[in-house]
């Protein structure tokens, strides 16, 4: 039993995310939860809140949702659930993860570029959870994920063995290369990383993350996903 959480704004790449979830489910019974978030309206009374708290979906988005439903219906093991969430906090998000017993959070590629504050907040909240996170790349092809490059934190205490152990249990990935991450300076390493990626046909990056404070940066630093264009699987250090 594996459950997936896909925070989405119903952009076209949601379908790729659902695909990735179906691939990861490996024919086990799974629930795929699509999560929409919206700011909670600033109201005085409960009834006004209920009136204003309305999810509006455009025809385009409706279409994509239908596509996702159709996609899930072709499988026998997966179920699609849709969760509308109005307002967000650390505890609410944690509760959501526990409620659906989520094993993997999958972010569609476009989600990171969303400009709404609540979406960015959700991204940050997700990094605080113990759940692994998969950030998809632009043209994600779920079928080919097997070889991974491990980005080792320079001062991280995680050993290669433990990461590979964790991956063996949870993901069909094999680490074929590793590079050491020098405190956020990827620039020097990128040519080498690209070389290794083309040499070994690497299709996934694995990194570990530690608990960080939620903060909104004004100038968003491009992360690895954008620079290298591969999906990034982010593992919580303590979990590994």
């Amino acid at each position: 039993m594996k459950n997936f959480l896909i925070p989405t704004t119903l952009s076209p790449d949601t379908i790729a995310a659902v695909n990735a979830a179906i691939y990861q489910s490996k024919n086990a019974d799974s629930e795929i939860v699509l999560l929409f978030v919206c700011e909670s309206p600033d109201t005085y009374s409960a009834s006004q809140f209920l009136r204003e708290m309305r999810m509006q979906i455009s025809a385009n988005q409706e279409n994509i949702l239908e596509n996702c439903r159709a996609l899930v219906n072709t499988t026998t093991n997966c179920k699609l659930k849709i969760h509308n969430q109005c307002g967000l906090s650390t505890l609410i998000f944690k509760g959501l993860i526990e409620l659906y017993a989520i094993n993997l959070i999958i972010f569609p590629n476009s989600y990171q570029k969303e400009s709404k504050k609540i979406n960015q907040y959700l991204l940050q909240l997700a990094t605080k959870q113990r759940c692994p996170i998969l950030h998809l790349n632009v043209d994600h092809n779920a079928e080919t994920c097997s070889k991974a490059l491990f980005i080792k934190e320079n001062n991280g205490k995680i050993t290669l063995e433990s990461v590979q152990n964790f991956l063996n249990d949870n993901f069909p990935l094999e680490i074929v290369s590793q590079t050491t991450h020098q405190n956020g300076h990827y620039e020097d390493a990128i040519p080498y990383i690209n070389e290794a990626i083309s040499k070994y046909k690497i299709d996934m990056l694995v990194q570990t993350r530690m608990n960080q404070k939620v903060k909104f940066k004004k100038n968003k630093s491009d992360d690895l996903n954008q620079k290298i264009g591969l999906p990034v699987l982010s593992l919580y250090e303590e979990l590994v």
């Binding site: 590079t179 080498y192 070994y200």
Partner: peptide, 8 residues
Amino acid sequence: GKKQVQDI
């Protein structure tokens, strides 16, 4: 061998 990407 540190900066470079190492094979596993």
